[in-house]
Design a protein around this nucleic acid. Structure first.
Ligand code: ZN
Ligand code: ZN
Ligand code: ZN
Ligand code: ZN
Lengths: 164, 164
DNA sequence: GCGGAATTTGCAACATTATAACATTAGCAA
DNA sequence: TTGCTAATGTTATAATGTTGCAAATTCCGC
């Protein structure tokens, strides 16, 4: 790959956010689901960067907004966004990140940089099929696959601690 | 695969435990690491079944033992056991399970049954290499790979809710 | 065995993440 | 309007994990 993926280089991140929100509106409309102001705001916050955000981080920003929110507000919004396929939960971090393949059927694989904290979501058909095959050998019926790879992104592998 | 893996059928589980403890003793000796009574007891508890056990579950049993333990006791023992490669943490469940490949260099892949809760650890070279390849395409240097597959085990796929 | 260093454990407090239960409000349609 | 459903507010609590320091144990050279 000659040009590195978005999280690994400077880019117009406002465009990422705008695109994500636009996609979300479309998708929710298609699903007859209501993208309420709280839900939309939470999605926007999750998209603040390519680093996953904890539920309580979201909560803190909502508080700054003047929104008098409690944990259930955030968790409910996040549950909704997950159901709509708009965000993913990163189990190894207890944190959430915007889905970069919203609307597409995909199995996310996440590359998590230990140094800068950025996360890249990949669609990896080769991995998915290998997992499916391995499960099938045990007669196991996969339902949901979690693949999270911790390591070092190209930027940090050469020189540590960027903000991306 | 004609005969199903251990967690999916009745077996002499005491033999699993005994083997795991024997392996642990050998491995710790090789590493010059001290398998103290607390650590050994925690390992034994983790091996009580092929279902992952939460740290506080372990704590509760220690309390029944009469061992006046606090959370750090358990977490320290678990950290130690993880470092020795004797247990794995299942991120999607916040729980721990005995490693069935202790001593071997391996990348665990976990098949987690949503119905009976049993977990099968596989070594899946095809999956590992596919993950490595996908990461390499993004110039990402993997360090630690988490692969957890939730779904239904062969027993539960046919008829639900065994105890295994 | 003895004494000092290093490892391990005990213990108390605390931090973080997530959920339960129930009241209230907003959206929508008959 | 009225009545239903989905969404949110509110309070409390559960579940999971960590920090910091003191005491005890173990190891190792003497
Ligand atoms: Zn995605
Ligand atoms: Zn990085
Ligand atoms: Zn293992
Ligand atoms: Zn099962």
């Amino acid at each position: 790959m000659s040009s590195s993926a978005l999280p690994y280089r400077p880019h117009n991140h406002q465009a990422c956010v705008a695109q994500a929100l636009a996609d979300a509106r479309t998708i929710c409309q298609q699903h007859n689901a209501r993208l309420t102001p709280t839900r939309e705001r939470v999605l926007e916050l999750i998209w603040q960067s390519h680093k996953p955000l904890g539920a309580y981080d979201v909560l803190a920003v909502l508080a700054e907004d003047g929104h008098n929110a409690a944990p259930p507000t955030v968790y409910r919004a996040l549950d909704f966004l997950q159901q709509q396929g708009l965000v993913h939960r990163i189990a190894s971090l207890n944190a959430f990140i915007g889905c970069t393949h919203a609307g597409e059927r995909h199995n996310g694989m996440f590359l998590i940089c230990r140094s800068c904290g950025n996360v890249l979501e990949l669609t990896a058909p080769g991995v998915s099929s290998a997992v499916t095959r391995a499960a099938a050998e045990e007669s196991f019926q996969p339902d949901n696959v979690t693949i999270e790879v911790a390591g070092y992104c190209p930027r940090c592998a050469s020189e540590p601690a960027h903000d991306g």
